[in-house]
Write a protein that binds this DNA or RNA. Structure first.
Length: 139
DNA sequence: GCCAACGTTGGC
DNA sequence: GCCAACGTTGGC
């Protein structure tokens, strides 16, 4: 099982939009970046991810699960682009802000901090556990 | 195949 | 709203 982070601008696609989709999930489409695509190709059914709001909020607001592995992006005919489907699992009881992450020992190496523009990123088990604790995301 | 130009993203 | 960083595109 691996962990990931999905970044979205809330005005484009927010956590509320994701939750509204329920168990059907939604394509994480529109990604036109090779690194991000490659990460999506590595994702397995059941992997978990953080849902991050960029721009105004800059915080992790919820947890999602991969509910379909990589398949062609339906928003383009360009066969280079694949995407996965994700479904909302639960909100973060306490959202974890970018400032929190930057201030926290051991989290400064996250791509979120180092490569803020990468829209899909891997998260290590240690980082995952730390952030869950910060967000009071329980077992 | 290189590299300059351009567009986009996202933090501040 | 600005600007820096980065990735992609396209001309050569």
């Amino acid at each position: 099982m691996r962990y990931w982070l999905f970044k979205s601008e809330p005005s484009e696609w927010s956590w509320a939009d994701q939750v509204a989709k329920g168990e059907d999930g939604e394509e994480w489409d529109g990604v036109r970046n090779y690194q991000a695509r490659n990460f999506m190709r590595e994702m397995k059914l059941g992997d978990l991810g953080f849902f991050y709001h960029s721009q105004k909020d800059k915080e992790i607001v919820g947890v999602v699960r991969i509910c379909a592995e990589a398949h062609p992006d339906s928003t383009t005919d360009d066969e280079r682009w694949d995407c996965v489907d994700i479904e909302a699992v639960a909100p973060m009881p306490k959202s974890v802000t970018l400032a929190d992450i930057k201030a926290h020992e051991g989290l400064q190496d996250m791509p979120l901090v180092k490569s803020p523009r990468l829209s899909v990123q891997p998260v290590t088990k240690e980082q995952w556990d730390t952030i869950c604790e910060m967000g009071r995301y329980g077992k």
